[in-house]
Nucleic acid binder design. Structure first.
Length: 799
RNA sequence: GGACGGUUAGCUCAAUUGGCUAGAGCAUCGCGUUUACAUCGCGGGGGUUACAGGUUCAAGUCCUGUACCGUCCACCA
């Protein structure tokens, strides 16, 4: 193979991407240097939940944040870009169960925890590698895991702080409960689901009369737990029965009819029965009637206990079936109406939630709603309207944050209860991290007793991940730098966790530091299937990023991901992916072409720009306006438009026009070396700039092309350590742009002229005449003749 | 029911603070390859900007209403 042919080498993304990812890691290209002067740009990287493989949505939103990170780095900022994993709590437990084909409650607690650790050790490196594979430019030495000792210590310390501030408290109350996962959950963990069900009309006798009233319910199975019947005090139909009692069918329980203004006269029959607990409305009813004692019939596993009489041992749906049968027999079931209604389910497993009265730990924060809203307004949001979601959520918050989970694999509460007086005994800060199950306090309880019962609940995973800014910053040893890092510059994330991670982080930052945790929030959308529907395993429309990368390369995936701006959803489209693939290939080929002609080119800094030809000034001028637009878009986090301007400049202006114009000149043997040198200067400058502008989007191919040719004349070790080229618009006369734009129009019309006649664009024409108002166009006649292969062009000036 | 987004070419999206003939990419049709790339180039066709009013010299853009789609939240025993 000749030397020239080596410039034609093909583009194979797979090997090249692996090579540069290793290079970056080995050379520590993205290392945070706390000693470096200049502005720090810090990112509160979302720690991926260790719950399986990377989803295309991850690749999408992490690409967005990485584009911004890389851009900021190339603007000379000192990047603090850590990478952690969220590897405790329910999602991790579910993964461990699935991976090892076990069930948590069939195992000893300690064995399950051991299995979790073992499984994580096995899977974590592979998962982190998936993030490295998509070209995330984190400093992977700034690495944390939310189950590590350091993070446990920090999380426990902050819990103790909340307790001391009287923000954390424990109380017995009906809580949101998942009977599948057998744990309390928080309001944020809920997900709506539509269910088909029946509204059952049940007739009950009013004791001491021969009258009946009928109430309607979707939850007849809770009849044994019925504690109240209400009507609206103004309801003329039932007013007369207030204070009288009804006899429940099956249980024979006698329940008083109580007036309650919250009752809707127009729904069902206007008579409501309340159970402990059929739903939030029952919980609220109980709160309004504190003298009434609940009948707790549900055990943590969702089965009914002895209080449910003959229905004990059954679960909700089984009990429902049985009770309806029994009601039919007794004749109490008047009718059944089929309805569709929305029920609350557990977001992690899809099980209908229940309310069970248990002792749980809460964080008191409802009194701070106003402050949370205020903090939200102090932070810049991109897109701005996403703040509304945050505000909407806060306004709708009705419960304190339940942070205790009756699970195994998570951060333990650092406390015990006195076996005698039940008083809480906190661990000392110096003892952290601690698992109270394995240690006893060293000092006695204030009551004098020395035996303690450990708290065996664990902390909600969000109770730890809401501390990520602090967790990440604590990885830095130098105290001064730590101070500079908080609040962080940027929090990137997707919109699905505004109510979770984002809200909780701001809430914790308010509670602990009374400061906003970050200055800016960017919110990415979702990747949808080609029809615009959510991707899900059950629908079978999931696209695996690994397969896309295998087929097209990471750069293609990243280039495509930048098609959507912040907050926008992007539909999966193989056609669009192919479009990005074409851009990458084009960049490769155009670079090869330039390298061919730049083989012996020596970079010079003292070339007089004024002496360049008009065509060269034109492309440089356009380059500068492109950079200006590009920078302006990035300032507003509009990387989508930044990509558009660079795509347009590269393909339309540089390849289709500039290269086509200079190509005949470069091959022209009569053309002087001096004039060729000017063109080469432009090829070098413009191509290198294009690569730099593309680098945040497509880091692999730009690195390859940089290393392959430019490295020998540029001092930086990697293109990702270069700066975005500076612009100096004064250098060039904007009039030239107008002239060349007109010349482009002329070229276009000559192309059309040839095209209409079915001629090749290269076909030689003897003569062609142009009319123009601009006298200056005359000086381009030689250029037009060369480019369009015209023997003689005639330019007529008209008025 | 509440909040927020959206509706522009067959599809996916553009269109500064209202301002020349509403633009790209994909798709489609026609033409064109010895000299980076057919993963290409050139050219053509394709739009009553969801609908109805209003403001204005001028509306895709602003205002009012309607319809439809999407997302989040709250929900009814």
């Amino acid at each position: 193979m000749s030397k020239e042919k080596s410039f034609m080498k093909k583009y194979y993304p797979k090997n090249l991407e692996r090579k540069w990812q290793k290079f970056w890691e080995k050379e520590k290209i993205y290392k945070f240097n706390s000693k470096k002067k200049g502005e720090i740009f810090s990112i509160d990287t979302p720690p991926p939940t260790i719950s399986g493989k990377m989803h295309i949505g991850h690749a999408f939103s992490y690409t967005h944040q990485d584009i911004i990170a890389r851009y900021q780095r190339m603007k000379g900022k000192n990047l603090f870009y850590p990478f952690g994993t969220d590897d405790n709590g329910l999602p991790t437990e579910k993964l461990v169960e699935k991976e090892n084909k076990v069930k948590i409650f069939d195992m000893e607690r300690q064995n399950f925890i051991k299995l979790c650790r073992k499984t994580l050790k096995k899977l974590r490196p592979g998962i982190v590698q998936e993030w490295k594979d998509i070209g995330i430019s984190c400093d992977f030495d700034l690495n944390y895991s939310t189950i590590s000792k350091e993070v446990q210590k920090l999380s426990q310390k902050f819990f103790i702080e909340l307790y001391k501030k009287k923000r954390a408290y424990r109380k017995q109350a009906p809580c949101l409960w998942c009977p599948q996962c057998q744990t309390a959950i928080a309001q944020a963990d809920l997900e709506d689901k539509e269910r088909k069900s029946f509204l059952n009309y049940i007739k009950v006798n009013i004791i001491g009369t021969n009258k009946y009233v009928t109430f309607a319910t979707t939850r007849p199975e809770l009849l044994p737990a019925c504690v109240g019947v209400s009507i609206h005090p103004d309801d003329k139909r039932y007013k007369k029965y207030i204070g009288m009692k009804v006899k429940m069918p099956l249980t024979e329980a006698e329940i008083e009819i109580i007036p309650d203004k919250k009752t809707d006269m127009n729904y069902g029959t206007g008579v409501v029965y309340y159970c402990t607990y059929g739903g939030i409305e029952c919980v609220e009813w109980m709160e309004r009637h504190p003298n009434i004692k609940p009948i707790n019939i549900m055990a943590p596993d969702g089965k009914y206990n002895k209080k449910a009489g003959k229905y004990s041992g059954l679960k909700t749906l089984e009990a429902r079936k049985k009770i309806i049968e029994d009601l039919k027999i007794t004749g109490a079931l008047e009718k059944q109406e089929s309805i569709t209604h929305i029920v609350n389910t557990h977001e992690r497993c899809g099980t209908d939630i229940e309310f069970i009265s248990t002792k749980q730990w809460f964080i008191k924060y409802l009194d701070l709603k106003k402050d949370f809203l205020k903090f939200g307004r102090q932070i810049k949001w991109f897109p701005e309207y996403m703040r509304k979601r945050y505000e909407n959520w806060i306004k709708g918050l009705g419960w304190d944050w339940c942070i205790s989970r009756q699970r195994y694999f998570g951060i333990p509460f650092p406390l015990w209860y006195c076996a005698k007086c039940d008083k809480i005994k906190l661990a000392k800060i110096s003892e952290l991290p601690i698992d109270p199950l394995h240690y006893q306090p060293k000092t006695k309880c204030s009551c004098g007793h020395s035996k303690f019962i450990p708290e065996k609940d664990i902390l909600d995973t969000w109770a730890t991940s809401s501390l990520t800014p602090k967790i990440a910053i604590d990885l830095v040893k130098d105290k001064k730098t730590r101070k500079k890092l908080f609040p962080m510059s940027l929090r990137p994330q997707a919109h699905d966790i505004i109510n979770f991670w984002l809200f909780y982080t701001i809430a914790r930052s308010k509670l602990h530091f009374n400061k906003i945790p970050f200055k800016t929030i960017i919110v990415s959308g979702f990747v949808l299937d080609p029809k615009g529907e959510k991707m899900s395993k059950s629908k079978g429309n999931v696209v695996a990023p690994k397969e896309v990368i295998e087929k097209y390369g990471v750069d293609v995936l990243r280039h495509w991901a930048a098609k959507a701006g912040l907050g926008e959803d992007l539909r999966w489209s193989e056609e669009e992916i192919k479009g990005s693939k074409r851009t990458i290939t084009k960049l490769w080929n155009a670079s090869r072409f330039c390298f061919l002609h730049l083989k012996n080119f020596k970079k010079t800094n003292n070339l007089n720009v004024k002496k360049l030809e008009e065509q060269d000034k034109w492309i440089l001028h356009l380059l500068q306006t492109t950079i200006k637009d590009y920078d302006n878009y990035f300032k507003k986090y509009e990387f989508k438009k930044a990509r558009q301007v660079i795509d347009d400049f590269f393909w339309k202006k540089f390849c289709d026009n500039y290269l086509e114009i200079v190509k005949p000149q470069l091959y022209d043997e009569n053309s002087s070396e001096q004039s060729k040198e000017k063109i080469k200067f432009c090829l070098y400058t413009v191509l290198l700039s294009i690569l730099k502008l593309y680098a945040p989007f497509i880091p692999f191919i730009t690195e390859e092309l940089f290393q392959d040719y430019f490295k020998k004349q540029e001092k930086e070790k990697s293109i990702h350590q270069c700066l975005i080229p500076k612009i100096n618009l004064r250098l060039l006369n904007p009039k030239i742009k107008k002239e060349i734009d007109e010349v482009m129009d002329i070229i276009s019309s000559i192309r059309k002229y040839k095209s209409e006649r079915g001629w090749s664009l290269k076909k030689e024409i003897n003569e062609f005449s142009i009319r123009t108002k601009n006298k200056k166009i005359k000086k381009y006649s030689k250029l037009l003749e060369t480019v369009m292969n015209i023997k003689s062009i005639k330019i007529k000036i008209i008025k």
